[in-house]
Design a binder for these strands. Structure first.
Lengths: 207, 207
DNA sequence: GATGCATTGTTCAATTGTGAACAGTTGGAC
DNA sequence: GTCCAACTGTTCACAATTGAACAATGCATC
């Protein structure tokens, strides 16, 4: 896992963030690519009216700030740690060198980019096709998969209705309504966190 | 521009498609990466109910089918030529080799992936934040930029209201309504194609 | 110029979603 | 305990969006 540490140099450094700490903010100069070794990071954007949207939730193995490689000079989103997070920070130029000279990392980065692409594309398709009820169900299932695999049920760390609303592009009152509906129907359960039953899939698939 | 021809081998071949011809269909086995040398390609997805969504419109310099590099074995979308199109078709394994051994192409591919990422991400943010009226205005401006740069006005090749509706995830009647509104306000004009005035930007920016 | 096909114009009832308010609940800090 | 902040539960008037229908308009082709 410690890809970068193997040949660590001056231009790569480890960095720790606490929960809710800001890693970079929308509008900051974009100079580094970061690699998540441990933890979770939320990417959000705000528009002119102050409305916020969650663009992605990233975890271990994901990259961050890769936009600077494509010539982007400022950050288009705000990155916040959602759990205690260890990052490897790599300077842009170092990253470019690495992409040429280190196959294993180059492969990993390309694999990440391909996977990320698919994830965003699926989010977009989800938005284009589905009602907010289905989007909420899908978001919960995604977050659950993110936790564990294969189990019939997964318990999620606490996540506010506000954040869920931002993730799927709707209002909190709507999220609240559907959460209670899902609960009545036995798809989810509150117990400290949120326990998600795989039967929730039916909401996404039906019709 | 002819990146691939420089060292053309058996595993790379040129391919031509006529307007409206299908390059690959959703569900087909995914075996090749393609590079658009000339033309335009529309990526669409259909859901269970038969509703269609336009995921992307790609042009010269863009890649296609790169999902297979990330382990995807079937195509998740349908690719259709929107204008006469010349593609370079590269076998998956050849592409992987090329990514390791040919810096110029590797760079170009990564640049494409980064740009594509930003494009989809912007589309997603657009969906999360904006009304269908703004999304339509934005889509028209994107298509216009795709044609030419810098001019105060750009004329678009014909594009049906149906397709526009699929691009922004709404109904044709809604697109029709807003197109007529934009026309009344002098933002666009019909004259064979669709002429788009830069003042249309105000619709996207305002408020 | 008649035929058929694709597209556009228009309407409307029904549904879905918004934004804001306010009360209720919880959990941590003091 | 009690205060506070953050979150949830609930409601509602209003706005936006859908989906379907049907007529009107090109426009290519025979």
């Amino acid at each position: 896992m410690n890809l970068f540490l193997s040949s660590a140099g001056l231009k790569r450094r480890a960095c720790k963030f606490r929960r809710k700490e800001t890693i970079f903010a929308q509008g900051d100069p974009a100079k580094n690519v970061m690699y998540i070794q441990e933890g979770g990071v939320k990417l959000t954007v705000v528009n002119e009216t102050g409305k916020e949207a969650v663009v992605a939730i990233l975890g271990p193995g994901d990259f961050l700030g890769e936009g600077c490689l494509g010539g982007r000079s400022i950050c288009m989103a705000t990155a916040t740690a959602v759990t205690p997070t260890n990052l490897l920070v790599i300077e842009k130029n170092e990253m470019i060198r690495v992409l040429h000279e280190e196959h294993e990392l180059s492969d990993r980065f390309i694999t990440y980019m391909l996977a990320r692409n698919i994830r965003i594309e699926e989010d977009l398709i989800d938005q284009l096709f589905n009602s907010s009820e289905k989007r909420l169900a899908r978001a919960l299932l995604m977050l659950a998969r993110y936790g564990k695999q294969g189990q019939p049920q997964t318990t999620l760390p606490n996540i506010s209705q506000e954040t869920l609303a931002e993730m799927i592009g709707t209002t909190r009152s709507r999220v609240n309504f559907f959460m209670n509906k899902f609960r009545r129907l036995g798809f989810i359960r509150y117990n400290g966190g949120i326990t998600i039953d795989n039967s929730l899939l039916n909401v996404v698939l039906h019709e």
